[in-house]
Design a binder for these strands. Structure first.
Lengths: 117, 117
DNA sequence: ATAACGTACAACCACATGGTTGCACGTTCT
DNA sequence: AGAACGTGCAACCATGTGGTTGTACGTTAT
């Protein structure tokens, strides 16, 4: 159980926005799976220009989902699972609200008499 | 453990896109928490026009995160935690790829001699 | 040295997004 | 019946997004 600082609204916006594109989700999947991936190698996998893929990687990097590391003239893209965990954490919190409402409901039903409105 | 059918790329796009806005995340939080919420009651909470909030609710509805139910002249907005779970499931799968890479790595290191390249 | 490669970035374009106002229409209240 | 309310939708606008091509620049290979 690692203590993770919560993300700001703007960071969450960027994070979920980055995940809202199938090409970017695919890139994340590849780099998380450990594929040795320079930007151009990634680009060769998709039916779009190098520049387009480069932009996608930049979006992922700004969202913190990947990092880039210079290696000669190449930039190697690596996945950052921690940011995935943070996104997941938020979803879990939202789901938790759903669960908690029932305990609230129970409390209301346990009242001797509930006030009208 | 409920068997959930996987979402299409387009559905995932809509789902994460819907979550990539702090106003929408806040609406989700409210309705998941069980707040009795017509569209106009929700709208009164935010510093923007009714129409803007109505659009946000529409985006959430198309993403499957909320449902609307007629009640007289009002439309009551309810949260749908299942769609949250599906988004969370995808993140978990991506994180799982990260974990699995190490077992792959272990296998490679366990090789008597690894081929160059 | 020169060519080829990998990357970054700017300019541009079509379209989506998030906001606005205004209007139409069904429902509720007097 | 008529006023007020709640909602949906269209038109509009500024800005963002996802794609393109072209250019520049450092790194590697010949």
């Amino acid at each position: 159980m690692v203590a993770r600082s919560p993300l700001s609204d703007a960071e969450l916006d960027r994070l979920f926005r980055a995940l809202a594109d199938s090409t970017r989700r695919d890139i994340v999947a590849r780099v998380m799976a450990g594929e040795q991936a320079s930007v151009s190698v990634l680009a060769s996998r998709y039916d779009m220009s190098f520049a387009a893929v480069q932009k996608h990687v930049a979006v992922l990097e700004e969202a913190g989902l990947v990092t880039k590391h210079s290696q000669g003239r190449e930039r190697i893209v690596r996945g950052n699972p921690e940011q995935l965990a943070r996104a997941r954490e938020l979803l879990l919190q939202l789901e938790h609200l759903w669960v908690e409402r029932f305990s609230q409901l129970d409390a209301i039903l346990a009242e001797p008499r509930r006030p009208k409105r």
